[in-house]
Amino acid sequence: MTLLTALIAIGVLALIFGAVLGFAAVRFKVESDPLVEQIDDILPQTQCGQCGYPGCRPYAEAIANGDDINKCPPGGESTIRKLADLMGVEATPLNEAQTESVKRVAYIREDECIGCTKCIQACPVDAIVGASKLMHTVLIDECTGCDLCVEPCPVDCIDMVPLATTPERWKWDLAAIPVKMVE
């Protein structure tokens, strides 16, 4: 009899708490960005496709569906760390041997450009201007450094050049200042 009372009591308690929790879950539901949006915000939006998806958003969707978080070379370690925080998984190093490199932008050697428009078609962010049979050029401010225009170029006139440091963007790396030797 005691056993029965205990079981009933615990059962009732369980029911009550379950109901309370269920109510709380519905009533106090936290409205948050859908996961894909949050992931997409973390990704660097270079749209480079190096992850194997056509653009950042598809990759965000893939992560939300359980894909690895370490497929974004432009984002580098910091992006992986943020993704790991968000997804609650271990931060894994980049899956390729690609090290986090300096920021680069595409540069078209203009005297060699034949005006084939192939790079324009490849650029995911419309950062290359030009017309058929006319010279093309890269809008440096818009270029995300995704690399996608380099391969399609039939005459290999596109280089990825490191972005020049300006005094405004200088990172206070005093050790890197070349000191002139005198005498």
């Binding site: 206070w172 005093l174 050790a175 200042i177 000191v179 002139k180 030797m181 005198v182």
Partner: peptide
């Protein structure tokens, strides 16, 4: 002679 770089 060389110049020494230091932070303020």
């Amino acid at each position: 002679m060389s110049f020494k770089i230091a932070s303020s």
